[in-house]
């Protein structure tokens, strides 16, 4: 311990004596403790503290994890939201309603993990090590999902690894936007050209669309040196299909087909915080 702190008459004590009435004020707490308390709160409760007083207005923006669940945002507030967090590391957007926004831009310098979980069980995500989970739904046409995933992929110019659910893979073969007859994505998402060296595919069922989609990916990912394919439980139980699926090791590429499938979990559970 700093002994001088004991000998000196500390300033804080004086302050407390002088303003005895304010002793209980949360404003007396050191910044890092307030930040810790805010980080324990669900995001909307933390955000609401910005209305307490001027000094609280921006405090909640200094927390490392944010989870937005089932919220409605208009364009203005969304843009403000996603450009004001200096230390945010994990951002999870769970079933948020985007009110017909065409563009959502996220400018968070320290963000290392982004999970977007969309309504109707469609999910995609990430940055440095991207993972895109997408599940089909009756309500949303696959074409729309495909285009959005494709655009999303274009945004990850720095992603080195990427994890795709089998549906996310499949949409590559469905999107006319991103596929011409020669199976070259046009334009090729920049991460495929320069950075992406590992692709992980989850819940692979071994059907033809998935197969052709994986071929498209392999053709386009120029610096890829590893692709790991996890079978779905269904495929894991079907020996004949499995052998066929394992035959996709093509063009000198090593494909690991792993059984059983890994849990489709993200580092940030939308319900955990």
């Amino acid at each position: 311990m700093d002994e001088s702190g004991l000998i000196q008459k500390p300033k804080r004590q004086k302050l407390i004596e002088e303003q005895d009435i304010d002793k209980e004020s949360l404003d007396n707490l050191p910044c890092e403790i307030v930040q810790y308390i805010l980080s324990l709160l669900p995001t909307k409760d933390a955000a609401r503290t910005s209305i307490l007083s001027k000094s609280w207005k921006n405090r909640w923006m200094c927390i490392p994890n944010l989870v937005f669940r089932q919220m409605c945002h208009d364009v203005h507030s969304t843009q403000q939201l996603f450009s004001g967090f200096p230390v945010l590391k994990n951002l999870c957007l769970d079933e948020c309603h985007w009110m017909n926004q065409k563009v959502v831009s996220i400018c968070v310098p320290k963000l290392s993990c982004l999970v977007i979980h969309e309504a109707e069980r469609k999910r995609w995500s990430d940055l440095n090590e991207a993972s895109i989970y997408a599940c089909g739904s009756k309500k949303r046409p696959r074409q729309v999902v495909a285009n959005r995933i494709y655009k999303f992929l274009i945004g990850f110019s720095n992603a080195k690894g990427i994890m795709l659910s089998s549906f996310a893979v499949k949409v590559f073969s469905l999107s006319s936007d991103c596929k011409k007859d020669d199976s070259i994505l046009d334009p090729v998402p920049p991460c495929l050209l320069s950075q992406l060296n590992c692709i992980i595919v989850c819940c692979y069922n071994g059907d033809e669309k998935e197969l052709s989609a994986i071929k498209i990916l392999l053709k386009n990912a120029l610096v890829l040196n590893k692709i790991v394919i996890y079978c779905s439980e269904h495929l894991a139980g079907d020996l004949e299909k499995r052998e066929k699926a394992m035959a996709i090791t093509i063009d000198g590429m090593v494909a690991f087909v792993a059984i059983p499938p890994p849990p489709l979990s993200s580092p940030l559970s939308p319900h955990g915080l």
Binding site: I51, S53, K54, S77
Partner: peptide
């Protein structure tokens, strides 16, 4: 929260209303 934790609003008139509008989404379930 203000009452229990000794905090006072020092916003100018209108500022708080504007913030409340901006953060309307955070008031769900209060």
């Amino acid at each position: 929260v203000r009452k229990f934790f000794g905090l006072e609003s020092d916003f100018k008139p209108g500022e708080e209303e504007k913030l409340r509008e901006e953060f309307a989404w955070s008031f769900e379930g209060v």
